[in-house]
Amino acid sequence: MLSIENLRVSVGGAEILKGLSLVVPAGEVHAIMGPNGAGKSTLSYALTGRDGYDVCDGSATLDGADILGMAPEERAARGLFLSFQYPLEIPGVPTMSFLKAALNAQAKARGEAELPATDILRRVRARAETLRINPDLLKRPLNVGFSGGEKKRMEILQMMVLEPKLAILDETDSGLDIDALRIVADGVNALRGPDRAMLVITHYQRLLDYIRPDKVHVLVAGRIVDTGGPELALRLEKEGYDRYLAAA
């Protein structure tokens, strides 16, 4: 599904990703772990097309299509979703309106019919319930004045509503207490399926107790330096990244 080859990305002139390669097949959940500054967030922004993340070399394809030249919204319409580490506040735009705008824009971009407003309403409310999101929050401007945990849950809600093909979860566990973490993980797990892939970026192993990855990659100094099964995450938790850092 996602195939990254020799990706080099610089930010403000400094090279952050230095030839990163990665393949995530459909149906799999991969975790990326790494120390601060390794380039984890740079990877998620480069894939989603944020300004200021300059791709110098390499390629990234989603279902065979080169995404690096596309506008952020085109990538989204093709099924790429990023759960932001720091979700933005959007004053004056109620969450429900925002979701409706996003769903309809994506449908339009894909040449599909728009969903009737009542269906959208129903879909959003049902998903919100599973995430135990207070329905009143849906009427309020998106993320404005929400707690850190509420914002993260809103990210997962959007993912569940937009039903992407490839979801990137950037440090989704930060700012969540243990109960919220379980709720969020349940939401993520419910979305797992043969046609969907996920890339879980995290600093700690904790989240992976709840979202069990098929593979774990270690990202250090802009490159994938090791790949293994879930047991690799446990080992990293114990030993840290020192031996990779020494080698880099």
Binding site: D51, A76, L88, I90, V93, F98, Q158
Partner: peptide, 25 residues
């Protein structure tokens, strides 16, 4: 620009995102 990118990441085209943000304002 951060808000704009966030909205575009959800699939909303830039001009529509601007209009939504301004209508919110």
């Amino acid at each position: 620009e951060d808000q704009l990118f966030y909205m575009r990441q959800r699939g909303i085209p830039e001009e529509e995102a601007v209009a939504l943000l301004v209508n919110g304002f």
